[in-house]
Amino acid sequence: MARAPAVLRILVILTALAAGGILLLPPSASAQEEVASAIRRYKDRETSTGYYEEHEVRPRRQRPFVEIPGVQVGLFPYSPSAAQVRNRSRLADSHMGIAFYTDKTCVACHPEQAKDIHTVRGNLTCRQCHGGEPIASIQYFHSPMNPIRKHAYVCAKCHEGSSASFASYIIHEPAPGSVAARKSFPTLYLVYWFMTVLLVGTLAFFIPHSFLTGVRELFTRKKEAKNDADTTH
C-alpha cells in the first residue's frame, strides 16, 4: 500500500514530461512542400489510402462544367455554357474573354482587394503575388496560388518557412463588420461586433457616469475634517 503514492507521483511526473515534450515536437506540416490539403498534409506521411481528393486529379483543358444547385437559367440548371457570368475559379486564364481587359487596372474591378495590410502597409503590388499574364484562377491546378502550394510558391517569398496552415491567413480580409464578412469570415465578423459593442457599451455607460459624478460633486459641500487629519496619511 505504501507504494501506491510513489507510483502515482511517477505517473504525474511522466505526464508532465510528456505534456512538455509535445511543445517541442517538430511542426505537423513541413514547410515549402506541396500538400494535398490546405488544412493538413496529405495523410501526414503520404501513405496511399487508395482514394484521391478532387484537386489531385489533373484537370482537362476545358471550361469546367459547374452547376450551382438550385440556380437555374430559364429551364436549365446553371452551367458554364448557359450562364452569362462564368464561374472563373478554375481557369488557366481567369480573365479570359473580358472585354478591353488590357486597358484596365486590377483595382478597377477589384477595389476591395487593395485595402488590406499587405497592399496598404507592405506596399505590395497585385502582381508581386498573383504574377504576370495570364493570371490563373486560384483553384486552377497549375496555379502557384493553388492552396496546395501557395505557401511555398507565394507566401514563402517573404515569409520564409511558411506552412500551409500559415497560408490560410486571409490576405484580402473583408471589412470586419460588413455583411460580406458575415458570409465569408463569420468569426472575424463576430469578434468585430463583440468588441464594438463592448467599446460603445463601456463608453456609453461610463461617460454619463463620470459626467454625473462631476456635476453632483460640484453641488456637494465638503465636510470639514478635524485639523489633525489634514496632514495624516
Binding site: P27, H159, F166, M195
Partner: peptide
C-alpha cells in the same frame, strides 16, 4: 506568426490582429 500557425490555423492571425487593435 509561423509558430502560431503550427498550433492554430493561419486565419487566427486575422482574428489576433483585429482583437489586438480593438
Amino acid at each position: 506568426p509561423l509558430v502560431t500557425s503550427r498550433f492554430l490555423p493561419g486565419w487566427s492571425l486575422n482574428i489576433a490582429a483585429l482583437l489586438h487593435r480593438a
